[in-house]
């Protein structure tokens, strides 16, 4: 499939939205056990660009973004990065058909992508402790992240005039 060429604006939009995605994921909305369950906006933004502008988010960029998110989040370094990398490879494999599909199947694909990333990160975070992490909060975050993809996608389509519903 012929890809849209990457304009300077598209590159700028990718950088700004990815940075905002990381920053929004680290908002201090409560802390610890009382923290508000907040979507992982980085996953929403990454998926959107991987589907609509895969050349704008090359593997090295995914690696860098994942590393920054891990560094800022303070978890096991590399766990989120590897999870995002594996998830991005799966999305790339299907991006040609996803970009042509209707919004419903694309949303479903995002749910699958988010599930893969959450499960891998959960596993990689549990591994050094030799005990499984509680799944309650990560599962709740997965659900709100899946819900958040719809408004994020619509907002991007309207503001950046990219993609279709």
């Amino acid at each position: 499939m012929k890809r849209d060429p990457l304009s300077v604006w598209a590159i700028l939009a990718i950088i700004v939205t990815m940075t905002t995605g990381i920053a929004l994921s680290a908002l201090p909305l409560g802390a610890g056990p009382d923290a508000m369950i907040w979507p992982n906006f980085l996953l929403c933004v990454s998926f959107f660009w991987l589907v609509h502008r895969p050349l704008g988010l090359p593997t090295i960029a995914v690696l860098f973004v994942g590393l920054m998110d891990d560094l800022i989040g303070g978890g096991v370094l590399g766990a989120g990065m590897l999870a995002l990398l594996i998830g991005s490879l799966i999305v790339r494999a299907g991006s040609d058909s996803l970009v042509r599909s209707a919004f419903g199947p694309r949303w479903l694909a995002f749910a699958g992508f988010a599930a893969v990333v959450f499960v891998i990160e959960w596993g990689l975070t549990s591994l050094p402790r030799w005990s499984p992490l509680p799944v309650g909060v990560p599962f709740a975050q997965f659900l709100v992240t899946v819900l958040a993809y719809a408004p994020v996608s619509v907002l991007f389509r309207k503001v950046l005039r990219i993609g279709r519903t």
Partner: peptide, 15 residues
């Protein structure tokens, strides 16, 4: 001032 939170469900820290 607390300016950031780990945000995820995997760890609990603040910046």
């Amino acid at each position: 001032q607390v300016v950031g939170s780990s945000g995820g469900g995997f760890n609990q820290s603040v910046t």
